[in-house]
């Protein structure tokens, strides 16, 4: 069997190879499975395009055009009430900061209650975890609305909403960090004859602190994003301005506000990067 050429492969050759290496032509079962799964995916998509009336996209060109042109064509920039905008943004950042701070403090306690190695009683651990599932399972906006109903319109509801979401998220992440702790380092400290306070100080804290700090910094950034939209349900911050001006058709101003928020979030991202680098070093989270 010397030099071969593709053009010289005859149907007989194919038959011969099929005989000697039948699997090389694909497992018919696997092929059916593959075809079936693709059919399901594509079939589902087509069905959902129909169900959700994707065709409406093509009827919307006029409105979409109006919207897009207003977003990019900024008019009457002198009358945009910048003071309101920046007070709103400041309020949003403040809500996020305070909410994350309170969330962190609560999560510090609850995280230990939800971790296997620090909470020996399974009943309590599971109860705590289910409660955290409830906190996390309900979106921040929904919490916002709930708290608006409970304590009235304004940033207090927003802070509470961020707080409860952050308790849910951070506690879970903290408890995972606690569970992933390196036992050997703790044993090492204990072996020096340290008392419990020192075991925590030198065995646990150095391992946990960087992770906790990093998680809380990330949480601050993502809370700022969620705080932006809390105003949509009246829970304070710049979201109230966004929805107000959107409803009034001032899309250019909405675009301006969103642009400003994106810049603020980028700055927070950059700042938390610096802090992370200072306390944690390059390895990050």
């Amino acid at each position: 069997m010397t030099a071969l050429s593709f053009a010289d492969i005859t149907d007989d050759d194919v038959r011969a190879v099929r005989q000697s290496h039948p699997q090389a032509f694909g497992d018919p079962v696997m092929r059916m499975v593959r075809i079936a799964s693709w059919t399901i995916v594509i079939g589902y998509l087509l069905y959902s395009f129909h169900l959700f009336e994707f065709a409406k996209i093509f009827d919307s060109s006029e409105r979409a055009w109006r919207l897009v042109s207003r977003i990019f064509y900024w008019q009457d920039m002198a009358s945009w009430h910048y003071d309101q905008i920046y007070v709103g943004i400041a309020q949003t950042v403040a809500m996020a900061f305070l909410g994350t701070f309170l969330g962190t403090i609560f999560a510090l306690g609850i995280g230990f209650l939800a971790a296997k190695n620090t909470m020996p009683f399974g009943v309590i651990r599971h109860a705590v975890r289910r409660l955290l599932d409830v906190f996390r399972g309900i979106d921040g906006v929904v919490w916002g609305l709930v708290f608006v109903r409970a304590v009235g319109l304004g940033p207090l509801a927003g802070v509470l909403a961020i707080w409860i979401s952050d308790v849910g998220n951070l506690s879970k992440l903290y408890s995972e960090a606690i569970e992933n702790i390196d036992r050997k380092q703790v044993e090492g400290v204990r072996a020096t004859g340290a008392d419990p306070a020192r075991i925590i100080r030198y065995g646990y804290l150095p391992q946990i602190f960087p992770v906790f700090l990093s998680l809380s910094l990330y949480s601050f950034e993502s809370s700022t994003r969620s705080a932006t939209i809390l105003g949509l349900v009246g829970a304070g911050g710049v979201g109230m301005i966004i929805i107000e001006r959107f409803r009034a058709g001032m899309f250019d101003q909405v675009a301006f506000v969103v642009l400003n928020i994106l810049i603020v979030i980028a700055v927070i991202d950059w700042g938390s990067g610096l802090i992370r680098k200072r306390f944690i070093g390059e390895r990050g989270h």
């Binding site: 069997m1 071969l4 593709f6 492969i9 050759d13 194919v14 011969a16 190879v17 099929r18 000697s20 290496h21 699997q23 090389a24 032509f25």
Partner: peptide, 22 residues
């Protein structure tokens, strides 16, 4: 195509590698 598969198996066989084709 089946021709391509057969050709590839032939090429592998030429190097004594057809037994690990899959």
């Amino acid at each position: 195509s089946a021709h391509e598969r057969a050709f590839a198996v032939r090429a592998l066989d030429r190097l004594g590698m057809a037994h690990v084709a899959l």
